[in-house]
Design a protein around this nucleic acid. Structure first.
Lengths: 349, 349
DNA sequence: GGCCTAGATGTGAGCGTTAACATTGACCAG
DNA sequence: CTGGTCAATGTTAACGCTCACATCTAGGCC
């Protein structure tokens, strides 16, 4: 393990190693690529030379000749949000295990041009494939004219626009939450949805509707937010006014936080007066006032499955049009314990 | 703009473009690299051919000959946290503007081996430089035997171990928060610090101490957390027991959330009984109960400055040993408005 | 009109690796 | 003992690009 403090000399190349080990450069290459027919003695000698010279294979040269860059691209958007950030993390872990590097590029706008541009950039970089986090329909649409022949996997992307999709079963998560609220004794469940153009928001609405219907519960007016605590707060203020609200299923934890705050300010007690459930299980949720019941998404699994599908696609040119669905999990906390009692001041009866 | 639907043929190379445009490959290269001495007519013809063939330069071939990969590496850790995620985002934006790609790799463990391994991997990938988010001293130490000659910028890395550093002025942020609490009338300020091995935690403690000293306030016992809401909660419970606590400066917003929750449960009112300030300004902070006064860090600027420093280092081999300090900003919200009144039950007077 | 200059273009040689195809022995069966 | 097989190694030719240099115009000037 003698690591020469790299002198000011140019980095060693394969030929240098070959010379030092007294073999041909091809033999060095064989050692590097674990080719079977290299004698143990030679292998040892080569490895020693590699170590001695602190040799590192040149990835560009290798990529040039093999036409495999060992890089996959990830197109994300505002990766500051918990979901995308976690997914990116999962993807990176899985890619590394498979011996791939990850080149990220974030887009500001999820529709059209930015996405096209990102794909174009990654293609130029010769990525072997791309995972795109496409939570809006517009993003998926932009994929229709993606560079042909580029292996592509879409995360949370509806029908995927003809590409394999990996997603958490949003509708199922919504059903879990809604059912839980109904089971706690709520006559019906209100829903504060995410933006209409978000696929996740759409599917959560679907699941909520389906569960209400199959429980024979009346469907209240749908409320809309934009994922932000602010919008949850605004909608929470509206709900606080209504004495007939006993349970609210909020499309994400951040909005739920706003709702909790609005309720708190208006003196609406959670869970005594109203039950509240969220979606995502961000790290903070367990410490909201009260701790929030929510639906956990296994982003790690999403990342893993994405890479699985992508590598499969890279290996066999066939496009399996596969879809991987990751099941969600309901996490029950204090915000939904107990049956919601009547509100202190009922204005409508 | 005729984009040939890439037939099943192999992708076009420079020679194909040259042939179609009736020029030499070198002229195509000149057009691509904006070399001045190409006649407008030729340039047009070449561009048309490029478009016609849907030609994309092969980055590996280019990298092989120029020895410049146009890729920079980023070593992050648990990039799910708000700070690292935001910094990564800022870095990516800035890198893209400079025409660079970003290859991320997250490490689980911030000390030693994992970091070494990450740097090794990135080096093998021939990145031109690396930005490492190194919030612990151990991470910085691991940098001492980083591959020599690899341009490196350390984010939040103390002295940087001999490398340029970009950081937010943590101590100043802590002073701002502490001073604000004192100005609101608190006799002194308690502090719940982050883990002792985190540089940011250390510097926030320093700033807090310095400000207390210069205000002549007595320094209370230091409390320790681990950044999690849980640890904030635990420390909050301790503080709730003490009637002499009037103001708490918590080292991050997540712990502050736990503190708020503990206070709420014990009937300690914020800000009526105790003032609470956090650090980070995560998106949720404005919607805590009550909205949290906190110190905002401009992660975008951190990302930008990192890339600046890194590119500078790549360009001129000289290591400027520069340090970029990004100023923090105090964001005042309800959790610290008004003078903390006496606690309901004062035991000590 | 010849010569010099500079702009516009072409030619050839690598960059460092892997793939494909030799080549060399050693060993074994007939 | 001779031909064949196979393991271990070497040789040569790409891969697709840029760099350094060569070449060829067309002007400008004495």
């Amino acid at each position: 393990m003698t690591r020469k403090v790299s002198s000011a000399r140019r980095p060693a190349v394969m030929a240098d190693v070959a010379r030092l080990a007294g073999v041909s450069h091809q033999t060095v290459s064989r050692v590097l690529n674990r080719h079977p027919s290299v004698s143990p003695a030679t292998r040892t000698r080569v490895l020693a030379a590699i170590d001695e010279l602190d040799y590192r294979p040149n990835s560009a040269a290798r990529a040039l000749v093999t036409k495999r860059s060992k890089v996959i691209g990830v197109v994300s958007f505002d990766s500051t949000l918990f979901g995308p950030a976690s997914t990116l993390y999962g993807i990176e872990q899985a890619a590394r295990r498979a011996g791939y590097f990850v080149s990220v590029t974030s887009v500001k706008d999820l529709d059209g041009d930015d996405v096209q541009d990102a794909l174009e950039r990654l293609t130029r970089q010769s990525v072997e494939g791309v995972v795109i986090i496409a939570p809006q329909q517009a993003t998926v649409d932009a994929l229709r004219d993606a560079p042909a022949g580029l292996p592509l996997v879409v995360v949370e992307g509806g029908d995927g626009g003809g590409h394999p999709v990996v997603c958490v079963d949003q509708a199922e998560g919504a059903r879990l939450a809604t059912r839980h609220l109904l089971n706690q004794g709520a006559p019906t469940v209100w829903h504060i949805a995410g933006p209409a153009d978000w696929l996740e928001a759409q599917n959560r609405v679907r699941g909520w509707r389906a569960e209400l219907r199959s429980a024979g519960a009346e469907e209240p007016e749908l409320l809309r937010g934009d994922w932000s605590p602010a919008s949850g707060y605004a909608n929470g203020q509206l709900l606080a006014e209504r004495s007939d609200v006993r349970a609210v299923f909020v499309a994400n934890d951040q909005m739920a936080l706003g709702v909790l705050r609005a309720f708190h300010e208006r003196g609406v007690r959670v869970p005594t007066d109203v039950l509240v459930a969220g979606f995502d299980d961000i790290p903070e949720s367990a410490y909201f006032t009260p701790p929030l019941t929510t639906v956990r998404q296994d982003f790690d699994a999403v990342g893993r499955r994405s890479i699985d599908l992508l590598l499969h696609q890279i290996a066999s040119t066939s496009d399996p049009d596969a879809t991987a669905v990751v099941p969600p999990e309901l996490v029950i906390r204090q915000s939904t314990v107990g049956t919601p009692r009547n509100r202190r001041r009922r204005t409508l009866d």
